[in-house]
């Protein structure tokens, strides 16, 4: 799949933002006044900024409000509802902390749950696509949720939770790669089933429909060099989980924590780039591409 910057930024930063909001909703840390204002501003910047980035890949962004109508079947529509509801609930909860210095804990709990719901709906947009076997697994939403909680814990200054969640995120990420690598083969879709010509013999793409490129190839047939992919995976795991954990184990200062956050964010961006770039869409088979 084409790794469009808009969707990479969208999933990474909205995941972080909603992760932070979830921890704030739980009252970890319980902050009020200006400190709360700072935390909520950062969380909203990430969450809303991420959501806004997703609008950049729309062909007709001016009609975006119509995306609220089909929640019965579409995960994208569900995401629109859950994310907006979450932002409203958490804004109310945040207003209590910032302006009145009170924590409406029930509202915070509901908000935290909604935050996870938002991340889940985002992940299911990808996880529900059967045509992309690498995404079409239960591990996809698990990975998105764990990463969001880990990044949120890191931003919320929850040191112990962050260490455990980052480690868990690293494990889930590696599992996702291992399971994902043969997902296309396990799906049973290959050139033989795509063309229905498998009974006659071995099928090879002889001529593409056009000599030039097209939307399908640009959007779905992105290929990463295997060697690069392996290197990028190592970089992603080191930056996303290993380095932040190591830094958190050091005596914690704000500067060290900032480096840990930065490292984590860059790591997740690399992993998210791979999430798209390595995903094989079965339509590639019609073009003789994996």
């Amino acid at each position: 799949m084409h790794p469009a910057p808009s969707v990479i930024i969208f999933t990474t930063f909205s995941g972080l933002g909603f992760g932070l909001l979830a921890w704030l909703g739980l009252g970890l840390p319980t902050v009020t006044g200006w400190v709360a204002c700072g935390f909520f501003a950062l969380a909203y910047l990430l969450a809303v900024g991420g959501l806004a980035a997703s609008a950049f890949h729309l062909g007709r962004p001016e009609r975006a409000l119509k995306a609220f109508t089909q929640w019965r079947t579409s995960w994208l529509s569900r995401e629109a509802w859950v994310s907006v509801t979450t932002l409203i609930v958490m804004a109310t909860y945040g207003a209590g902390l910032v302006f009145f210095g009170v924590r409406w804990s029930a509202l915070g709990w509901i908000g935290a749950l909604l935050c996870l719901g938002t991340v889940l709906t985002t992940a299911m947009i990808y996880g529900s696509l059967r045509a992309v076997p690498r995404w079409n697994m239960a591990l996809t939403p698990v990975l998105f949720l764990v990463l969001s909680l880990a990044g949120g814990a890191l931003l919320a200054g929850q040191r112990v939770a962050a260490i455990w969640l980052l480690a868990l995120a690293g494990v889930v990420q590696i599992l996702t790669w291992v399971r994902g690598d043969d997902a296309l083969a396990r799906s049973g879709t290959d050139m033989a089933s795509a063309t229905g010509l498998g009974d006659t013999g071995r099928v090879r793409a002889f001529e593409p429909p056009h000599t030039g490129p097209n939307y399908l190839l640009r959007e779905f047939a992105y290929q990463v060099g295997r060697r690069h992919a392996r290197r990028l995976r190592v970089i992603a795991i080191l930056l996303m989980a290993a380095l932040p954990i190591a830094l958190l184990l050091l005596p914690l200062g704000h500067a060290v924590a900032a480096v840990a956050v930065l490292s984590h964010v860059v790591g997740v961006l690399v992993a998210r780039w791979l999430f798209f770039a390595q995903a094989e869409h079965v339509v590639g088979l019609y073009y003789g591409k994996r």
Partner: peptide, 8 residues
């Protein structure tokens, strides 16, 4: 679109 395949 029309693809062409070789079947061996």
């Amino acid at each position: 679109r029309v693809h062409s395949y070789e079947v061996l």
